[in-house]
Amino acid sequence: MVTDPLFYAVAVPAVTLLGLAKGGFSGLGLLSLPLMSLVLPPVQAAAIILPILLVQDVVSVWAYRRSWDKRNVMILLPSAMIGTGTGYLMAAQVSDAAVRLAVGLIAMGFALRRIVLEWRKAPPTPIRADVPRGVFWGWVTGFTSMIAHAGGPPFQIYVMPQRLPRDVFVGTGAIFFAVNNWMKVPPYFALGQLTAANLATAAALFPLAILSTWAGVRLVRYVSGERFYTLVYLLLVLVGAKLIYDGLVPLLFH
C-alpha cells in the first residue's frame, strides 16, 4: 500500500475529480490520471484508479438507473470490447503519450467546432444514434479507456451530437462505462497491475470516491440542460489541451 503523504495530497483531488465526473460533470475525470502520474508511474496510477472507478460506477449507475439510452449502449459495447482487447494487445507497443496526443487533438477539434456553432445561435440538428459511427467510436473508446483511462472524449464525440436530455446523456455514460470498466479487469490482471498493494491503496480512497460521486450527482442537477452542454464542451477543450500537452512533451523531449 502506498503510504507517501505526497501521494495522498495528489490522490484526494484526483479522486474527487473522478467522482464529480461520474456524477455528471463529464470530462473532469481525465485530469485524474495525469495528476496521480506526478507522483507514481503512470501504469501504477492507472491500476489504482481502476478499482476506484468500479466503486464509483455503483453509485452513478444507481443514481441514473432509470435515465439512460439503451440503443446507444448496445451499439457501443460490442466494439468497445474489441477496442479494450486491442488496447491490451498493444499496451506495450503504443505509448501513453501518443494516445493522449491523439485523443486530445480529436477532443479539442470536436469541442471547438460545437462551441462555434452554438455561439452562432445555430445549434446543429440532433443526430440519431447510428451503427457505423457507434461501432467506430465504441472501438476508439474501448481502446483509449484501456490504454489511458481516456474513453470520455470519444464517447462524448459520438453521443453529444444527439443532444440527449442531460440526465439521459449522463446515465448512458454511467451504464456504458460501468460495463466497460469491468471489461478492463482481466487485461489489467494479465498485465500484472492489480497487485495487493495497489488494491489496498485504492480501497483506502473508496470513501472519498463514493462521497464525491454523490456530490457530482447532486450538483449537476442544478445546471440547466443547455448550460450543461456548453459546460461540457468547455471542459472538453480544457481536457483536450491538457492531453495534447501531456502527449507532446514526452514525444518532443524524450
Rank of each mutant, 00 (worst) to 15 (best):
N181G: 03
R133Q: 14
M160Q: 13
L164V: 08
R166G: 02
I147C: 07
Y158S: 07
R120Q: 15
P165R: 11
V116E: 11
T213C: 08
I115Q: 06
T172R: 01
S145H: 10
D167E: 15
R133D: 12
P126K: 06
R133V: 07
V170L: 04
N181R: 01
G216C: 01
V168F: 07
L211N: 05
R113F: 12
A197M: 11
P165V: 08
L199P: 02
P161K: 06
T201S: 13
Q193A: 14
Y222R: 15
R120D: 09
F169S: 03
T144G: 08
P187I: 07
V179H: 05
P124E: 13
Y188G: 02
L191D: 06
A200L: 13
I115F: 10
I127R: 15
T141H: 02
M160W: 04
F206E: 03
T172S: 09
A190Y: 09
P123D: 04
A148W: 03
P186Y: 10
A150P: 03
F176S: 00
R120M: 12
G151A: 08
R221T: 14
T125P: 10
D167I: 03
T201P: 04
Y158W: 07
V168S: 08
E118R: 12
A203Y: 05
V185K: 09
N198F: 06
A190K: 12
K121N: 14
V170G: 04
A190S: 13
H149R: 03
Y222T: 13
F155K: 00
I127D: 12
F177I: 05
V116P: 02
W139M: 11
D130E: 15
A215K: 04
P124C: 01
K121T: 06
I127V: 15
G151H: 06
L211F: 13
P153I: 01
T144L: 09
A174G: 06
M183S: 07
I210N: 08
I127S: 12
R133I: 02
H149L: 07
F206W: 13
A178W: 02
H149K: 09
